[in-house]
Design a protein around this nucleic acid. Structure first.
Lengths: 142, 142
DNA sequence: CTTTCTGCAAACTCTTTGCACTCGT
DNA sequence: ACGAGTGCAAAGAGTTTGCAGAAAG
């Protein structure tokens, strides 16, 4: 029942903490593999879920795509570029009044996620055409 | 290039329009099958996507689960019960100021989705214990 | 008739899991 | 030594797609 500090778990947390973007499980896997060459993707998933259960990582489920893991713990919001897939952190004002009203009506509100979808600055005003979806803005992943 | 009004498409739209909840593709499939017994799930997916592309249906991608199709077209928000899975419509105030600021910074904001997660009234104050996840509140699905 | 759409089934993506073995503690 | 953690590979959910034939216009 007691948590162990395995190399795989430590490396996973380190990768997430070091990343300023919002990595997918696959991306975390590729980076963890640099430090722990033999890791399996299954283990990365298990550890990511463990970290989530402990509240050490947040999971972002964005429209049509793999889950993204966010090491930033305080409640914040996201802008998702539909062209290049980049996720940008935002700090939007929360609808506190409405939440309080729900609470009074008997609901228990645990989390609130706000996501904006559209085109990021780079893709909206392309000097040389918009970037390709997915990889373009995060090269050299291996 | 021209759209056809097939029985399958008509039935799919009718099912969505009649549903006051937020159906998954599987649920739409089961209901469409009542009217067009031979439909395939693949066709339902194709038609749902067609409707989405035409802006006749909105797609809700909620944390860890299948996509849900929402016939309500105006921008609105959702409360998701983590216990029974029910999705409730909300109308929260939008962060218009922040969106305008983003637009001025060069971003193109196309959609904004707000989702609250927690326990609905029924699951928060259970007279006879909380409902089981998933089916409990939507029985009789055929 | 022409062209889009359909049913079927296989393929695909993302994620979870059973099992035997490994490694923290 | 004990048991949580691991690697592997297979299974699982959800969704997409290629193809030959059906059917809308």
């Amino acid at each position: 029942m007691k948590q162990r500090e395995t190399r795989q778990l430590k490396a996973t947390l380190a990768v997430l903490a070091a990343a300023r973007d919002h990595l997918t499980a696959e991306q975390v896997y590729r980076r963890v593999r640099r430090h722990v060459p033999g890791v399996s993707l299954g283990t990365v998933y298990r550890n990511l879920d463990k970290l989530r259960a402990q509240g050490r990582v947040r999971v972002l489920q964005l429209a049509g795509g793999p889950a993204r893991y966010d090491p930033t713990l305080h409640e914040h919001d996201h802008f998702v570029c539909e062209a290049c897939g980049t996720v940008t952190d935002l700090d939007l004002p929360r609808a506190r009044g409405a939440v309080r009203r729900l609470a009074r009506a008997g609901f228990v509100v645990r989390t609130q996620t706000i996501a904006l979808y559209g085109l990021c600055r780079a893709c909206a005003a392309p000097p040389h055409g918009p970037r390709a979806a997915g990889a373009a803005s995060h090269p050299g992943e291996a």
